[in-house]
Simulated scan of single mutants.
Amino acid sequence: MSEKLTESITFKCTYEEKRDLEAIAKSDNKTLSEHVRSLGISNISEVRERINHLASFMRMTTDTVDTQIFELTAEPLQKRTGTKKAQLREQLSLSAVHTEI
């Protein structure tokens, strides 16, 4: 990894988890730090992909003007014209009950 690394992350795990992670890293010819970093980068990519996918359905955009951290902001809604029935259906969809099985 050629870029200059300027931050450090500390996390807690059991000795057994650390041994397992070190063994996995060693099998890939990486240090523990490189292995954990690659897992983090992979996780970030997956989450960004999921957010971008959901953003298209929710009419949301990512705003990264001033920072490397992305946040979702709602696009302005267009003025709707329709009947009261359509508005009631939208309200009902917002109050859907979700249960865990």
Rank of each mutant, 00 (worst) to 15 (best):
Q68Y: 09
P76L: 07
L77W: 11
L32H: 02
H53R: 12
Y15H: 05
T62Y: 01
T83D: 09
F70T: 09
M58D: 09
A74H: 13
D28F: 15
R19K: 14
S38F: 11
I44A: 14
R59K: 15
T81A: 05
Q91A: 13
I101H: 07
T10G: 02
R80P: 00
V65N: 07
R80H: 09
I51P: 00
E7W: 02
T10W: 05
M60L: 08
T61H: 09
K79E: 11
I51A: 11
N52V: 00
P76I: 03
L5D: 01
Q78N: 12
D66R: 05
R19N: 05
L21D: 01
Q91Y: 15
I101A: 12
K12V: 08
S95Q: 13
A23H: 09
M60N: 02
T81F: 08
T10V: 08
R19T: 09
S33Q: 08
I44K: 15
I9V: 13
E22V: 05
S95R: 14
E75S: 09
M58Q: 13
I44L: 13
E100R: 03
T67W: 03
R50A: 14
D63Q: 06
T67Y: 01
Q68S: 09
E7M: 01
C13V: 10
S2R: 08
I41Y: 08
L39F: 05
R89H: 07
E16Y: 07
L21N: 10
E75I: 06
Q78A: 12
Q87T: 12
K26M: 06
V47P: 02
K85L: 05
K26G: 03
E46D: 15
C13S: 04
D20G: 04
M60F: 05
V65Q: 03
E3R: 02
A25C: 10
G40H: 00
A23D: 10
S45L: 12
D20I: 10
K79H: 10
H35Q: 09
M1V: 03
T81W: 04
N29M: 03
C13G: 11
T61V: 14
Q87S: 13
K85V: 01
L5R: 12
T83C: 06
S45I: 11
E16P: 00
L21A: 11
E17I: 05
E100A: 06
L54F: 13
T14S: 15
L88I: 14
K12W: 10
K12Q: 10
S45C: 04
K26F: 12
I24P: 00
S27C: 02
G82I: 01
L92K: 11
D28I: 02
F11T: 12
L77A: 14
K79M: 08
S56E: 15
K26P: 01
I51Y: 09
K12N: 06
S45N: 14
